[in-house]
Design a protein around this nucleic acid. Structure first.
Lengths: 222, 222, 222, 222
DNA sequence: CATGAATGAGCTTTCATTCAT
DNA sequence: TATGAATGAAAGCTCATTCAT
């Protein structure tokens, strides 16, 4: 489904970890700050302390560097997910941990989230389809499995399809991420709640968890 | 909070409605198709059958044309909202009508949704803050009022704050819109549900409404 | 056989003749002096006193400007041909006039000849096939007709095919042009004749004409 | 007249013949295929299985490699000449053998001919003057001697200067080579003769030989 | 008011050459 | 001697904006 072309040239892999990370960090930062189009390859090179020529020895094109940056970024998020979802916790505890993780990473890695938002907005170009699978498959699989399991345990309603439950929950998570990372969504939060989202971290977490728990919870039998 | 500078010059208002609409339609289409950066002002002028000079007589800059295009687009969506939310319907009926409206407009006005998605992704630029209030305030107000009212009626839980409930519901709606209009989110839907979202319109509507209803519903008292 | 795409944009045709000629002259000069690859579009614009942007309003690409330059150049040469070949002269007089014309134009329009030489050397690219027909067809047709006519008159041998005779004669003419216009061929002439070709204009003309006349001449019947 | 700087560094001569030939073959092929400007030194190195660093240990610059490649290529052509011109054959037989050799080598060594064509087209750069003597002197000398000898024998006209006769004959040969090797000239042949030159090998040879023989032949005395 | 030609800064990408290892 | 990563100038082309007509 997704093209599996490598996004880096071998020369990049041979670089010292320090240098590699500096390049990734710089590129992530620039793309997140300015979006794909407004990011200048020469600036990235300069800020990363290397020559443009070298950058093009490491990456085939600006687009490849961009895609790599995103792919790399989502790896970080996947790690967080993987440490929470399969853990030995109740559903409510997991939801709480997930929202907390979103709050933390969104703040710490605002740029990654912005990158993600940049990707989703590209609309119809080839840029889009390349990474959707790689980025979304992990959470789709984990969340759906989680829902199935909870249904088996009888903790959540049986009349909602597991993938759909997972999908809607993820929708809420993504919206939340945006609300932390994107300027536009931050403003929107203010319009709804009259405050900065960071000021209401705990409240947000509690309400989101409660909202999802109620949405999913099996009706108490009398 | 937001600058209230008019986005059009007086000359634009004097234009025949036909001409005005042609310009708006062309600009919307181009911006939605290509994103802000990749849209060419000269092309818009050409496709709208006017000169660039004229375009600059109507709009101060490319950015203003873009913002105006978005503002105009959201008006359409607001109209839909206003016809549903205050109507004499049960909450569940309203939710159903809203989701149905999202499904219809997202399909019919894909371009508008894409415009919206383009706007939210701009990140931190000045572009962003200009319109968030104008675009979001109407739904924020209406949804919050709706929630308050339903709480008063006792149909939904009292332990969730009305603005937060409205916010989360809107988050689900927005995610849904994206799932119809953006290529990336369409792919993502496929990853979760294994089908094209259009094939599952009814199912999606029912599940979303049920999800939200459960999330909000007041626990049955014994 | 040959693509008939126009090489200029309409904007170019609207230019004043003066400006148009300045651009053509500048481009011809630059391409002839440096070859296609080493010619800088920005330099052409600068030397022609216009902006790069304008140049790209007139011509789609560097290649188009190059091809147009050549096409324009060959028009000049065709005019010379057309004034000589159909005239009421003996074959020998025509040959003499043609060689003389080559000597004159090669000296005066060295750049045009160099352009031609640049084109022929491109080898296998798309650049090549585009103009060969347009450039060569006129002389091919005229020379071949001339040969046929002379054969009919009985002034030249019947056992040589007219197109082949025309082809070989043209080969000699082209080589001669190069010997005047290209540095390499000038040197080569010196190696053969021990002098600069310009010093021996008359001699060259006489010998070439005699060579061709003998090659073609019908054997004297006893 | 020509700079006699060696085109290779001593390190190149120390290489195994196999390696040396591989480098020459690769360079010839690349230069012929792409022309001087569009040939990439790094690619040559890669295709030849050596490092760029080494290539620069063997050759001072890209230009030197190019010139060496040409010089080497012409050696091959010279060998062919030397085996034909001094042989014990009649002039007509020699012409026939020469044209046949041109036809064979042009087909077999298209790349060499293209290299030659690339060189001659460079126009006025320093590239040009460097090798003209080395390349042309051999044929100039041999052809001129041949003409002198034939004049002495009385087989060809006395009223044409031997160097000039040699020069014009060589012009026809070179044009013929181009007609086999360069895309542009191949097309041109088609325009004149309505066929691919390869299809008419024998016809071309006969006509060219006849053309030259007639041009040179001493008039039959009554 | 309308036009659309003109502008030129700015962008991505290439590649001959160097030099530390 | 061999390597190949690093360099950075340079080139073709785009497009928002201006302004003379």
């Amino acid at each position: 489904m997704q093209e599996n072309r490598k996004l880096t040239k071998p020369t990049f892999d041979n670089l010292s970890e320090e240098k590699r990370h500096l390049i990734i960090r710089t590129a992530t930062s620039e793309f997140a700050r300015n979006g794909f189009e407004n990011t200048n390859i020469n600036t990235i090179a300069e800020k990363a302390g290397i020559s443009v020529g070298s950058l093009y020895k490491y990456f085939e094109s600006k687009q490849d560097l961009f895609l790599f940056t995103i792919a790399h970024g989502t790896d970080v998020l996947k790690d967080v997910l993987s440490s929470i979802v399969p853990a030995a916790l109740t559903l409510e505890e997991k939801l709480n941990a997930l929202v907390e993780a979103i709050q933390t990473t969104s703040r710490e890695q605002k740029e990654l989230i912005r990158l993600y938002s940049e990707l989703t907005s590209v609309g119809n170009s080839e840029l889009v389809e390349r990474l959707s699978y790689e980025i979304e498959a992990v959470s789709a699989t984990m969340y759906t499995a989680l829902m199935r399991e909870e249904q088996k345990k009888g903790t959540i309603r049986g009349d909602i399809e597991a993938p759909m439950a997972a999908f809607l929950m993820d929708n809420l998570f993504i919206s939340l991420q945006f609300s932390y990372a994107s300027e536009y969504y931050r403003q929107r939060f203010g319009i709804y709640l009259g405050a900065t989202i960071e000021e209401r971290d705990r409240f947000v977490r509690e309400q989101v968890v409660a909202f999802i728990m109620n949405a999913l919870r099996r009706e108490e039998e009398p």
